[in-house]
Design a protein around this nucleic acid. Structure first.
Lengths: 234, 234
DNA sequence: TCTAACTTGCTTGACGTATAGCAAGTGAGG
DNA sequence: CCTCACTTGCTATACGTCAAGCAAGTTAGA
């Protein structure tokens, strides 16, 4: 009668595991329904624990959210750092490197839709009004700055580089957020086989042509190796 | 002590005006804080009426939201139609037309940030899970489809056109939603003088180069979205 | 090795607050 | 005076948080 569980068995006690389960459940629910729209009870239910356990481990709902965000940003940072390390080790021509980076970024986002949704909500919460910013936003801002720093941008030619970076992110990001609205409305199915490959190539095309101006670009020599190998994704 | 107001004066009663004020207040608050995070009391306060007046005029919170959405989409539709009419009247070359359309679209979004935020929230609410879709989404889907139709897309070569349209929207859309996160992180200030002009040129550049680069032989055929379909659509 | 004392993991109950919606009231203007 | 425009009062519900409690696990001492 102690720890009633799904099948009536007594559950083993394991703080680390439970904490991680709560974190995972929270990440999914926050991404899917937003912060205010997910209750701690929801999180507990999805994690297979009781109402109050999320609060027990994380103190408050806000702190749980912070923890989720932190974990997400940590993922991105390691991904960015890995990508950068690989780039530095390669002797490929700049265009190939750029194409590879764009492709990698696209693949990362496409395989982490919950992250994208989470950040998108974050961006909307950080409204243009100079209201007192909820403390849960600070972490995100800092992490974002760190990532930008990891990318090694912001040194030379800030404005033009910045616009390109924004465009690049936008092109990869947007179809994920709007997969159920705009994409559907224009007849694109993100679930379709090969969609990600086509979209990725389209983005790379746009960015390379943009970077090169009107100069012709040999697209094929620039394709990342992964473009052909990936049929579908997670 | 019936209708206490800001200055203690008796207020005149005017249903239409009050309704519009409530609608405006709701649009702003929904866009700024999201649906769940704005209470009817907030709307009432901002509109200068009492707690329950929004409910009195619109029945329920959901219906108020629907009304807000409907008004927003109506705005977009008229803007799209006006733009299209102007395009049809012009004899400019396809590239100029495309550039003009992109610029118009950018300007519209830049001057309607609440609309952008509203739709962005909507897109996030329409999660990938096949849950029962809230009725408030239906209006958006319909209006969006109508707009696509107005633009005369989806005729020939739907996939390429669709991807270009998505990219175009993404490039204009993204900086508005992420003005306080990514843009700030990369050192771009959307409030700075001339930012919109620079961004708009950047977007037009990217799109034009992309269009030109992807099908270098025949420029006109690359823009069926705009140039070839102006006269006909379903 | 047995067990009693103690710690940690987790649950249930309770309380305060926010809020959507309803119902009854009240005043203005035709 | 009567209807419409609008208000205040009330209720039900949902949720975050706190506190008490209990069981599983751990350590210390015989």
């Amino acid at each position: 009668m102690a720890y009633p569980t799904i099948n009536g068995q007594t559950r083993s006690r394991n703080a680390a595991r439970t904490k991680q389960r709560i974190l995972d459940a929270a990440e999914h629910l926050f991404a899917e329904h937003g912060f205010e729209q997910t209750s701690l009870a929801d999180v507990g239910e999805r994690a297979g624990v009781s109402r109050a356990t999320p609060g027990y481990f994380f103190g408050s709902k806000d702190e749980l959210y912070q923890a989720v965000l932190a974990e997400c940003f940590a993922q991105v940072r390691t991904a960015v750092q890995q990508g950068r390390a690989r780039t530095e080790a390669s002797n490929a021509p700049p265009e190939a490197i750029l194409a590879g980076a764009v492709g990698d970024y696209y693949d990362f986002l496409a395989s982490h839709p919950t992250f994208v949704r989470l950040i998108e909500r974050e961006a909307l919460t950080a409204g243009p009004l100079p209201e007192a910013i909820p403390p849960r936003l600070a972490a995100g801002q800092d992490a974002l700055a760190a990532i930008i720093d990891d990318l090694g941008i912001a040194d030379h030619n800030p404005d033009r580089a910045a616009h390109f970076l924004v465009s690049l992110v936008a092109l990869c990001w947007f179809p994920i957020v709007h997969s159920n609205t705009l994409l559907q409305a224009v007849g694109l199915d993100p679930e379709a086989k090969g969609f990600d490959a086509r979209r990725r190539n389209h983005v790379i095309d746009l960015v390379l042509h943009g970077v090169r101006g009107s100069l012709p670009v040999d697209t094929k020599s620039v394709m990342p190796t992964r473009a052909a190998s990936l049929g579908d994704d997670t």
